[in-house]
Design a binder for these strands. Structure first.
Lengths: 129, 129
DNA sequence: CCTTGACCTTCCAGTTTATGGAAGGTCCAT
DNA sequence: ATGGACCTTCCATAAACTGGAAGGTCAAGG
């Protein structure tokens, strides 16, 4: 599987895969004799996970930590558990914020007439959340 | 209210407030005779909204669009409604992804023993979510 | 066999969204 | 009037990409 297919399969652009390799987020890919990078299904899973984590606002560094644990199975599982728990807390917080923001937007659109009348007072609520 | 107080009140660092001004995300602040920026409560609300939106993964550009609508009350409310709705969809998606990710992590920590035993198979699940 | 087009490679430059620090002005309390 | 905590601008750096140039590779068709 070359980098283009890997990009399609994982949702991470080829350019970005190379970038991730360059900053050691992922290990150097195996190469064909001619120098093309090749990827295994396991690599795709890893890339998908990175993709998902990044889109949800986790830093590359955070993702790196999780991947380290994933790679080094011999680590104490207490450490894995602690990291997972801390990430879960972060996630809960993000979900709460998103819900609050969603509510603001919902109020906003419900109180707006949806026609051309310009009295849409709910925009005022945006800051409050 | 000077920039330091505004920073504390809004949660946006002073440095970042100046940056937002420099890229026209917010209008230039009023100045004292000596050149210090001053901020009103309304400015703080705006900054808080920006802060919240950014932390949830909305781009500065997206935030800018919403702020534009907020500023220009005379716009058709249909437009406001459309933008709000589109953002709500995005938010729903983000929430769904976070929940999926949370579930993965929960499974992970539940199946881990939390002691020093190294058999923590759930790390394998990370890519799947 | 050779060409054509879609891949791949590296490298360097630019973008977005800040953040850090230097050099210097301001404000206020002692 | 002087120290320290503010503020100012400007320039450099960071993180996480993204685009483009210059050139190598591969598979298909003529």
């Amino acid at each position: 599987m070359n980098i283009g297919e890997a990009a399609k399969a994982s949702g991470v652009p080829a350019k970005t895969i190379r970038y991730y390799e360059s900053v050691n987020l992922i290990p150097p890919a195996h190469r064909t004799d001619s120098g093309y990078r090749t990827y295994e299904p396991a690599d795709i899973e890893r890339l998908s996970f990175i993709q998902r984590s990044r889109s949800l606002g986790f830093s590359v560094r955070d993702v790196g930590k999780l991947l380290d644990l994933w790679n080094d199975r011999s680590r104490a599982s207490a450490e894995v558990k602690a990291l997972a728990t801390s990430h879960m807390t972060e996630i809960d917080q993000k979900i709460a914020e998103l819900r609050s923001m969603r509510k603001t937007l919902k109020d906003l659109s419900e109180h707006c007439h949806g026609d051309d009348r310009p009295d849409c007072p709910i925009l005022d609520g945006l800051a409050g959340g």
